[in-house]
């Protein structure tokens, strides 16, 4: 579940806060002879303490009321599903790691087609739309805004792109 409930969420935040305090204490001491006693770790330690206290407070003050805060009628929508978000996550990871290799247009077209078909669109219209959309986005950003989007194997047709 992505909604943890107050107790688990509070403990998670508190643990994170303690981790931050630990990491911040490793930062160097304020320089000797400097006018003030606050080094680079001062502000992070303070924030770590605030996060820890707030996390503990969340865990203790209102235990066992998971999902009490209703964000825009989420509760009506029921339990979250995972396939869709996982697909989005994979698409973005693929973009981060593969865009230089494959190039923007092919990668974007494939990603779009997969997501569109997943969203219930039939294959052929999804393919057409994803090719049109990825080529349009490429030209808009690459030609219009001069963003150096990766061309990948299409580099050979660089004159046309």
């Amino acid at each position: 579940m992505t909604n943890l409930g107050d107790r688990a969420l509070g403990l998670l935040i508190a643990a994170f806060g303690i981790g931050v305090i630990y990491m911040a204490l490793q930062l160097p001491e304020p320089m000797a002879g400097s006018h003030i006693a606050y080094g680079p770790g001062f502000f992070p330690v303070l924030l770590g303490i605030v996060a820890t206290i707030a996390g503990v407070a969340l865990a203790i003050v209102r235990p066992g009321i998971p999902g009490e805060v209703d964000t825009d009628g989420l509760s009506q929508a029921g339990r979250p599903r995972f396939a869709g978000p996982a697909l989005v996550l994979l698409s973005m990871l693929a973009y981060v790691y593969l865009s230089d290799l494959i190039g923007f247009i092919p990668l974007a077209a494939v990603t779009l087609a997969i997501l569109l078909v997943f969203g219930g669109m039939r294959l052929l219209p999804a393919l057409v739309l994803s090719i049109v959309a990825s080529v349009s986005i490429y030209f808009m950003f690459s030609k219009g805004l001069l963003v150096p989007l990766p061309r990948g194997p299409l580099q050979t047709w660089a004159i046309w792109l």
Binding site: M92, A108, T111, G119, G120, S134
Partner: peptide, 11 residues
């Protein structure tokens, strides 16, 4: 349909 719009917004 958001199912069409969302993948494009992701791009």
């Amino acid at each position: 349909k958001l199912a069409i719009l969302m993948p494009i917004i992701l791009m």
